[in-house]
Amino acid sequence: MSPERIEEAAIQLFSEKTYPVVGMRDLSDAVGLLPGSLYVHINKKEDLLQRIVEKGIQRYLDAIEPVVESDQTAPERLRGAINAHMRVLAGSLQQTRVAFHQWTYLAPTGKRRVVKLRRRYDALFSQIIDEGIEAGEFRAVKSARVTVLAIIGMLNSATEWFSPTGELTAEQVAEVLADGVLTGLVA
């Protein structure tokens, strides 16, 4: 049994039922192992959640960091970051639901590790907004922090309504979202 297969089953179960409701027996049934045999592959359910959450957030960091570090204008980078976020979401909707909404079930040490990753994610959008304001590409908003939190909140809530098989592709949704955000920001 591969660790990836166990993680995939856990992602599906945690996404459908939530982490606290899923037991080791549910997970062992999903992968076709006896509960005792599952412990050969994982120490405890929380370790599995930790890996799923960290890998999930890292996917976003890996997709968005190159966009933020590019030499494009701030509006182009913000559009690109939103697009990158939606592309990752389209390819990992269930994992994103777990990563963004169930990390709070982790023990304090695990939560601290996740908060560091989440701060890196937040910092990417803060960098774009701050540099855009400084360059005069974005208007001086009353609170850059609130602006960043609003953008991130909008993107994170997409786990509740976006469907990779829906009427609009991830890129089309990203364009609509970016147009809305940029309409309020562009100087």
Rank of each mutant, 00 (worst) to 15 (best):
G80M: 03
L89I: 01
S37V: 11
Q50D: 15
A84Q: 04
G23K: 06
R97V: 08
V31T: 06
P66R: 11
Y39W: 10
E69T: 13
F14A: 01
S28H: 09
A144N: 09
A144W: 06
A81H: 07
V67D: 01
M24E: 12
E46H: 09
T104H: 10
Q50A: 14
T104R: 15
K44M: 07
G36V: 08
Y105G: 05
I64L: 01
R112E: 15
N43S: 14
I52M: 07
G80Y: 00
Q94I: 05
A90T: 02
P75W: 13
A99W: 00
R145L: 13
S92L: 02
M24W: 14
I52V: 09
A107S: 13
A123G: 10
E54S: 11
V67R: 00
T96F: 10
I151R: 03
E46A: 13
T104N: 12
S28A: 15
R59W: 04
G132C: 06
R25W: 14
D71I: 02
V114K: 02
E134V: 15
T109M: 13
W103F: 07
Q127C: 13
G132M: 09
W103I: 02
A150L: 15
D26R: 04
R97H: 09
Y121V: 07
V141K: 07
L78K: 02
V53F: 02
I57C: 03
Y121R: 08
N43M: 12
E134W: 12
E54C: 07
V148N: 05
I64H: 04
S126A: 13
Q50C: 08
I129A: 05
V115D: 05
A135Q: 12
A30P: 02
R87Q: 14
L117H: 06
K55C: 02
K55L: 03
Q58H: 10
V21T: 15
A144D: 11
R112N: 07
A107D: 14
G91W: 03
L124Y: 14
W103H: 03
L48M: 06
I129S: 08
A84L: 00
K17I: 12
P20A: 00
G23P: 04
R77E: 00
S126I: 13
I57R: 05
I151D: 06
E76D: 07
V68C: 01
F138T: 07
L106A: 03
M24H: 08
I57V: 05
S92C: 07
